[in-house]
Every structure is written in C-alpha cells, then in structure tokens.
Amino acid sequence: MKIASRPKCLTKEHFSYCPGCTHGIGTRLVAEALDELGLIEETVGVLSVGCSVMLYKFIDCDFIQAPHGRASAVAVGVKRALPEATVFAYQGDGDLAAIGTAEIVHAAARGDKITIFFLNNAIYGMTGGQMAPTTVEGQATTTTPEGRDPALQGYPIRMTEMLSTLDGVAYAARVALNSPRNVRQAKRAVRRAFEVQQEGLGFAIVEMLSTCPTNWGVKPTAALELIDKQMLPTYPLGEFKVPEGMKKVVTC
C-alpha cells in the first residue's frame, strides 16, 4: 500500500530553504492541496519577496513575482481579470505584516476571493535575521541584539486575528508546522482555504508558524520546540473565522 508520495505538482528542484527550516513543509502542503483539489491547471500563484520568492521553482503552475509587500494586490488584479482562476499568494511575515499591511488589509476588507498563505517565522529570513513585526517579546535579532523590548520596538502583531474581524474575510486560521499533529491540521486548513475560494465565499488566509533555525541561531530540533515555547504564547493556533455551514478543521 502506498502511504506517501511526492505531490504531482511539486517539481524535482531542490528546495532553496535552509536545512531544518519548516518552510518546505508549507510549500509541500500547498502543492498537495492543489493536487488533491485538481486545481493546478487553473492556478496562478503570486511570489512575494523573501525566501518564498523561489516558490515558482518548486510548484509547477503559473506565477507572477510581486514587489515586496504587494503580493496580495497583484493577486487581486489577477483574480479580478480572471475570476475563473484559482489565485493564491505566499507571503512571509516581513512582506505581509510590515511593508504589505495596507495591501493585505484592503484585499481582506473587500472580500477579494483570493487565498493567502502567510509564513510567520518571526524574523526576516532572506536578509539575514532582522526584527520582523511578528518578532516576539524578548527575541534577539540582528536589529534587536538585546531582545525585542516593547518599550522600544513595540509589540508583535497578530495579523490573522486582526484580519478575521473584517467582514470580507471568509476564512482565517493559524496553524504550525512543527509536529506531525500540527502539520496534519495545517494541511486541512490549507485545503479549506482553497475550497473557500472555489466556493467564491471571500478572502481566505492561513498563517503558518514556521521555524528559521539559521537566523534564530538554534538547531532544527530546538527550533521546533521554540515554536511551542516562544511563539504559541503570542500566536495561539485555531480558526478565527469559518464560513457559515462549514465545519472547523483545526482543533486546538
């Protein structure tokens, strides 16, 4: 019996993510969901700026590369011109929660029928480990060497909860990629976020808590534990908004 295989739409390219980073799991989950829902032929993905910009090498579908922070606006343009396509953007926390806040908030408020995957690793990965808007209190980065001090650098932003308050949002969930159980839950949320778009119900976002062993300066296994210890207290898992009539798929 075959119990696991490579998703059909995942290319043979080696991931450019650092060893031990859970970003690859997020990429794989998106590929699996596109396969299972049979959407790959009609999908247009939008690349953000960050480690995620190489996604076009890994998932075999059409892509547009967006300026930093603007992925959701580009996705809106595609979806408005081509409503029959499945349109998703895959953004990191620097891209979505700092420079791209206006674009994501208004795409959500308008209820644009796009799917957003939001990789939150609480740090700028590609540029070498600077403080992100999602960096948790006390977390050391190259630009907060003494740890993030709310008195100086303010507090981390819970984007998914914020967005879930908007009427245009149909689905908003936060999952984590650090354990088999969490990954299984993440998979269900990723699928649901595409299904919500297929049904034309509105804006859908799945935030995935992900590790960055390289810039956190810890071993991959320790990084998985840090998600539980350091990120979950600030970023609780769960579905903050689910369309009426749809069951919750993430259990906390």
Binding site: I64, R70, A73, V74, G77, V78, A85, A102
Partner: peptide, 12 residues
C-alpha cells in the same frame, strides 16, 4: 495598491 493590481490584471 493600484499599480500592483495593474501588474496582476495585465499579466493575464
């Protein structure tokens, strides 16, 4: 936002 929507729509 507008110019990036242009990028998306024109790309189709």
């Amino acid at each position: 936002g507008a110019i990036n929507m242009v990028l998306g729509a024109a790309s189709t």
